[in-house]
Amino acid sequence: MESVTPLSTLQAGSQAVIVSIQIPPESRGRLLEMGVLTGTRIELVRRAPLGDPLEIKVRGYNLSLRKHEADLILVRRD
């Protein structure tokens, strides 16, 4: 079953594909340059002990983002 949800709601260890990034254009530049793009496959690796930030795996490396940004990245689970 396909469903679109924010990246922040993924279960730790599960993968999805980014369908849209709703972070305001002015502050999304660096994220895009790090390879977090529409169509990119992404894995939520884990949440930090206090629930925030999140660790994700994208294009073969690990990156940490806050829940605030992850809420604005929509993904499609497969």
């Binding site: 972070i23 502050s27 660096r30 994220l31 790090m34 930030p53 660790e55 490396y61 690990n62 990156l63 940490s64 983002l65 806050r66 605030h68 940004e69």
Partner: peptide, 11 residues
């Protein structure tokens, strides 16, 4: 506003 965090976690 807090700046977004983009932090690489190297192996």
């Amino acid at each position: 506003e807090p700046a977004p965090l983009i932090l690489e976690l190297p192996p």
